[in-house]
């Protein structure tokens, strides 16, 4: 399926879902369960093994730097 077909189909999907939904006036629910979300600031930690493993999967790098280009996704 090409991108255009996917897009067309997506438009149909959205139309039908929105029609099915209809109108409403209520407060939105973002979080189903709410608790305190704070964490005490404490001594920092670093896992050197993780650091090396994470860097090793970078597709492009220059020594210890990732290398990337500016661009846009939308």
């Amino acid at each position: 399926m090409n991108r255009e077909e996917v897009k067309e189909q997506a438009e149909r999907v959205l139309r039908e879902l929105a029609e099915h939904l209809g109108e409403i006036e209520l407060e939105e629910t973002y979080n189903v369960i709410q608790v305190e979300g704070l964490r005490e600031d404490a001594a920092p930690e670093v896992d050197p093994e993780f650091v090396e493993a994470a860097l090793s999967i970078a597709p492009r790098r220059d020594e210890r730097y990732y290398v990337a280009e500016a661009g846009a996704w939308v």
């Binding site: 979300g37 600031d41 670093v46 050197p48 650091v51 994470a54 210890r64």
Partner: peptide
């Protein structure tokens, strides 16, 4: 710190990483 050593999966935004609670000191 040397470049890219001061990091974990969370601040690197790796797939699946979730934020810990917000740093209370910052708040």
């Amino acid at each position: 710190a040397e470049p890219n050593t001061n990091v974990c999966e969370i601040c690197l935004g790796m797939p699946g990483a979730k934020p810990m609670g917000v740093n209370a000191e910052a708040v």
